[in-house]
Write a protein that binds this DNA or RNA. Structure first.
Lengths: 257, 257
DNA sequence: CGGTGTCTTGAATACCATCAAGTCTTGTGG
DNA sequence: CCACAAGACTTGATGGTATTCAAGACACCG
């Protein structure tokens, strides 16, 4: 049985490059949000009759695929560090990003029930993630009401995000979609304490093609809108970092209509 | 405590017009899919220490609102008969239909966890629905593994539908979106035995503005695409009934790309 | 230095929205 | 049952928005 401690050593990739803290739950940026703590606590609670979850840590470099549609039917991945994207690819090669995954995010709550994801997960930055055994995690979720509540909240959040994206893609302009995507990321990153304030500024590893795939636009048009935002002094992007210069003005665009 | 039997009498609306069978679970078109049977069985199982769910039947005429964003925080509605839509309204009056609700559908599995829905539910046809007490239903779901599995499946299905809609709105043409919407409804109605085959034909109460709101298009453009479909001999719509004349041709449009 | 990937820009085009009639349905009250 | 009004659908003209295509600027890297 792997425990939280020795899971940190069960890593694929060059050992020298990997830093222990990247898998240590106490240091995890998504600690308060994610299920690792709950799983660890559950393990502690049930130690009378030890009931640990099989899990393991993994490393994937930027731009590589974490899991395909058919992979890992019985494993539930959780992002420990880095950004990833859940992507649906159409037969003509066009892509739609269904969600961005940030540290502490489960890839999808539906995976707990063995839903065959028809999307693939791709690393945007270097990503460290942890996988849990699905059956074990599921039975633990059913037994631990507190853990169950955590999943319920994650599910509600996931559905709300999906609904918002549907409305954005169906009824909003290119400017609104891009502004809302950024504001959405600001909100989620703020919860993870990954945003420096006054002015709002944070690591922004997305390429324009990521923004295009997430907003249903083309790369070219994303470029035009972003330069327009820059020209108006709303935001600034460079060196993989995004600064919101005029927060109110930007909010107004994101919430317009 | 209301039971399944006397719930059928707890109906708002003119009693004469309401037919008992419209609420009778055994006659419910969504019987195999929905939670009513499971709830009834759970009641039977736990009769030693009776543990029923407070529920009640309701009637709403076509085009009227079933519930607003803030309504019914502690009630979980399930459609018994008729079609409804979950709609997000933007401040400029434009609307996006997030999902169509068919007999046997829960409005959203997320409601089980008290998620404040930021959309409203509107009846398309006359609708009969049943509401369950949220807290009671939730505790029942946690206790009954079989009921839990049913919810899990509904949850997975709901997420899958949402993801598909995201891809359709983000990356598909008007023709594809409309064709896929129709094929999606065919699939869901087939499961409910609400489709006559050879050629495929079924009750289709949607107005063109419903299709427009669901596909992110305008009413005018929906009209043009539909007449084009008709002109090509793919489908035929009249008298609130839709017939697919060229199933393969229509499938090809829906799945293209 | 060339190679690669990212971003930018402009022009041509496809797609869809908007506007404006006009026709056809559907529902309602007399 | 008819007359009328409101709503639903159709059609064509026009314009806007976003895509596609093509070319060039720029940085980074071996």
């Amino acid at each position: 049985m792997l425990t939280l401690m020795n899971a940190q050593t069960a890593i694929c990739g060059s050992a020298s490059e990997l830093d222990k803290k990247d898998f240590a739950c106490a240091a995890c940026l998504g600690f308060d949000l994610n299920i690792c703590r709950a799983a660890a606590e559950a393990e502690a609670v049930t130690r009378a009759r030890p009931m640990g979850i099989h899990q393991s840590g993994h490393f994937v470099p930027a731009r590589r695929i974490i899991s395909r549609e058919q992979d890992q039917q019985d494993l539930v991945p959780v992002i420990c560090s880095g950004w990833a994207a859940a992507i649906v690819t159409l037969s003509d090669g066009s892509r739609q990003i269904v969600s961005f995954l940030l540290p502490g995010d489960m890839v999808s709550t539906a995976m707990l029930f063995g839903s065959r994801p028809f999307n693939l997960i791709e690393a945007i930055t270097d990503v460290r993630y942890r996988t849990f055994n699905r059956a074990e995690l599921k039975s633990l979720v059913c037994k631990q009401p507190e853990l169950f509540e955590k999943f319920a909240r994650a599910w509600v959040e996931e559905k709300s995000q999906a609904n918002q994206l549907i409305v954005d893609l169906g009824r909003r302009t290119a400017e609104e979609r891009i502004a809302r995507l950024i504001m959405n990321l600001v909100d989620r990153l703020t919860k993870r304490k990954m945003v420096r304030g006054e002015p709002v500024e944070f690591e922004f590893p997305l390429r324009q093609h990521h923004i295009a795939d997430a907003t249903g636009l083309t790369r070219v048009h994303v470029s035009k809108v972003l330069t327009e935002f820059r020209r108006e002094g709303l935001i600034n992007i460079n060196e993989r970092s995004l600064t919101i210069l005029d927060l109110n003005g930007f909010r107004r665009i994101a919430h317009m209509r």
